[in-house]
C-alpha cells in the first residue's frame, strides 16, 4: 500500500523481504527456542558435542530447580514480593506525581522534570555505591524493604516521567470541561484523567515490573542469602565446577516466560513506554 515500485524491483522485493524477515526472526528467536528446548532436555542430550533436537522431554530440570538444594522457591518468593511492592509503589506515586508535574504551573517545572529524568538515566553502577553505603549505615542491606527502595530508585522516576507523558496527551479541553462542571481538581484527576490514562498506567506497570524482575546489579550488591532474587539464582548456578545448563535453562524459562507474555500483552503501547513517552505509538 505504501510503496509503488517498478515491476523489476517489486518482484525482487517480493522474495527478498520475506527471506530477510525469516533471517531476522531466526536470529532473534533461535537462542530463546534453544533455551526452551534445553530446559526440557535430559542431561545426556545437553552434554553432547552434537547439539540435537531429538530427545525425550523431561521435567527433571524443573524438579531439581525447586526440590534440589537450590532453594529457588525462596528466591522466587523474594522476587515476587520485591517486584510486586516496588511496582505498586512506583505506579501509585508515579500517577500522582506525573499528573502533578504535567499540570504544574511553575518556572521550576523544567528543573523538576530534569531531576526526575536524570535520576532515571543515572548509571546503575554510580547509584549502587552511595546506596550501598547509605543502606549499610541504615541497616537496610540484606532486607526486603531495602531492595524495594533500591528498585524504586529507577522505577519511581521512570513511572513519574512516563505517566506525566501519558497525562499530557489527554486533550486540555477534556480537563477544562471537567473543571467547568464544578469538579474539584482531585475529582477531575480521579474520575476523568485517571480512567483516560488507563493504557498508560498498564504500560508503566508492566515496564516497571520487567525492570524490577530482571534486575541483577542492585540485588546482587544489596541483598544477602535471605533476600536474593531469581536473577541472582542464575548467578549462583555459575560455579567453579562448571554450569548445569539444563538447570539454568529451566530457571531462565521460569524467569523469562512471565515477562515475555507481559511484554507482548502491552505491545501496542511499548513504543511510548520504551521511548520514555517521546513517541506516541497508538
Amino acid at each position: 500500500m505504501t510503496t509503488i515500485r517498478p515491476p523489476a524491483a517489486r518482484s525482487m522485493s517480493r522474495l527478498l523481504v520475506p527471506a530477510l524477515a525469516v533471517v531476522i526472526a531466526v536470529w532473534a528467536g533461535l537462542p530463546l527456542l534453544w533455551m526452551l528446548l534445553t530446559a526440557f532436555k535430559p542431561d545426556t542430550a545437553i552434554r553432547t558435542s552434537h547439539p540435537t533436537i531429538s530427545f525425550t522431554p523431561t521435567l527433571d530440570n524443573f524438579r531439581n530447580l525447586f526440590l534440589g538444594g537450590n532453594r529457588v522457591g525462596a528466591y522466587l518468593v523474594n522476587s515476587l514480593v520485591v517486584t510486586g511492592v516496588s511496582t505498586v509503589i512506583a505506579v501509585v506515586l508515579g500517577c500522582l506525581a506525573g499528573y502533578g508535574l504535567t499540570h504544574w504551573a511553575s518556572r521550576y517545572k523544567r528543573d523538576v522534570a530534569f531531576w526526575v529524568l536524570s535520576t532515571r538515566m543515572a548509571p546503575i553502577a554510580a547509584v549502587l555505591v552511595p546506596l550501598f553505603v547509605m543502606f549499610r549505615g541504615a541497616g537496610l542491606v540484606n532486607t526486603i524493604p531495602g531492595l524495594v527502595l533500591a528498585h524504586l530508585s529507577f522505577n519511581l522516576p521512570f513511572a513519574i516521567w512516563l505517566m506525566s507523558a501519558f497525562f499530557a496527551r489527554i486533550p486540555e479541553s477534556v480537563e477544562e470541561a471537567a473543571l467547568l462542571d464544578g469538579c474539584t481538581k482531585w475529582r477531575r484527576f480521579r474520575t476523568v484523567s485517571l480512567p483516560m490514562a488507563r493504557a498508560g498506567i498498564v504500560t508503566t506497570a508492566v515496564l516497571c515490573m520487567v525492570f524490577s524482575w530482571n534486575d541483577y546489579a542492585f540485588s546482587s550488591a544489596l541483598s544477602g542469602p535471605d533476600t536474593a532474587t531469581l536473577p541472582q539464582a542464575a548467578g549462583a548456578l555459575v560455579t567453579q565446577s562448571g554450569i548445569d545448563w539444563g538447570l539454568l535453562s529451566a530457571l531462565a524459562v521460569v524467569v523469562a516466560v512471565p515477562m515475555l507474555i507481559a511484554g507482548l500483552a502491552v505491545r501496542r503501547h511499548l513504543v511510548s513506554g520504551l521511548s520514555l513517552g517521546a513517541v506516541t505509538g497508538e
Binding site: A28, G29, N214, A234, I243, M259, G263
Partner: peptide, 18 residues
C-alpha cells in the same frame, strides 16, 4: 523480534555463554 528485550540481561549473558 521483541522477545530478547524482555529477558533479564544477566540471563542474556549466560545464554550467550551457553
Amino acid at each position: 523480534v521483541l522477545l530478547p528485550m524482555f529477558l533479564a540481561p544477566v540471563l542474556v549473558g549466560l545464554l550467550g555463554r551457553f
